[in-house]
């Protein structure tokens, strides 16, 4: 009976592909991270952990995610709520809001470089307003917090769109009757948002938060574009060890750290925003 094997036949290419190019390489990463000169060794991990940049890179990466993701969630929720209230011009505004979705983090870094660099638009504006006389070197190594702020702005600017798109689609799945019922039973707009929208939006919130937090841990090109190596982040260090130091074992150890915090974050959101069985829309 060939029909019984048809679905397996159709899944076969994707399965093989994912096994070869997804499962196997991640096993390789784990192996490389504990290998030195062809044998088992914790040396790569020790090298990584004792390197002076490791704590800074881990700290900045986590801090960046902790600042960016909650802000993005609030912004995206406001954008999505505003958009769902619109009757005219809805699709145009949705398109404008979702433009950054298609941009790479490198492009976003370069865009904000145009604003923050020494002869950039921020300095020009400040000079035009008479606040400063000489342009300030915002992105210098002595201004690490300004670099951090610029990275936060660039990340907010670029990656809030994807959260908004997920939330707008999620809101579209909530039937209107629930709001009407809420209204009939006396909930005002704010209460409806807290008691109806947010709880029913949990699956979308969950996937948006997982997606964004993981992407925030992978932050790399924005930071490089805006701050070079002044602001160390995990992905940047991974790249450095792979390229500048030519040590793929330590690079793999870094990769393992990113993988670890990614899985921890995923499990956290899966638990925290779990939807009880049968409580779905």
């Amino acid at each position: 009976m060939p029909a019984r094997f048809l679905p397996y036949l159709m899944l076969l290419p994707a399965t093989i592909f994912l096994l070869v190019f997804f499962v196997y390489p991640f096993i390789q990463i784990a192996i490389l991270a504990v290998t030195q000169d062809g044998g088992f060794s914790l040396q790569p991990i020790t090298t990584m952990a004792t390197h002076w940049k490791f704590n800074a890179a881990l700290g900045w990466t986590v801090l960046l995610a902790a600042v960016v993701v909650p802000l993005q969630l609030v912004m995206a929720l406001s954008m999505a709520t505003i958009v769902t209230k619109l009757k005219t011009g809805r699709s145009t505004i949705l398109y404008i809001f979702s433009i950054p979705l298609g941009l790479s983090d490198l492009a976003a870094g370069i865009v904000w470089l145009a604003i923050f660099e020494q002869s950039g638009f921020l300095n020009s504006m400040l000079a035009g307003l008479g606040v400063i006389e000489q342009p300030i070197l915002f992105l210098g190594y002595q201004n690490i917090w300004v670099i951090f702020l610029a990275v936060v702005l660039a990340e907010l600017w670029r990656a809030t769109a994807i959260v908004m798109v997920i939330l707008v689609s999620g809101m579209g799945l909530i039937p209107k009757e629930y709001y009407e019922a809420g209204e009939v039973f006396g909930a005002n707009g704010w209460q409806r948002f807290w008691r109806i929208t947010l709880p029913l939006l949990r699956p979308s919130l969950q996937s948006a938060l997982i997606l964004r937090t993981l992407a925030a841990f992978e932050v790399f090109a924005v930071v490089t574009a805006l701050g070079g190596t002044t602001l160390p982040v995990l992905m940047g260090e991974t790249f450095n060890w792979q390229f500048a130091m030519q040590d793929r074992n330590v690079a793999s150890a870094y990769a393992l750290v990113i993988l670890g915090i990614s899985i921890a974050a995923t499990l956290f959101f899966l638990r925290a925003l779990r939807v009880p069985k049968g409580a779905t829309i």
Binding site: P25, I29, L214, F217
Partner: peptide, 10 residues
């Protein structure tokens, strides 16, 4: 749940 660009290393 995996940081996929890291695949590039192995």
């Amino acid at each position: 749940a995996f940081p996929l660009p890291l695949l590039a290393l192995p």
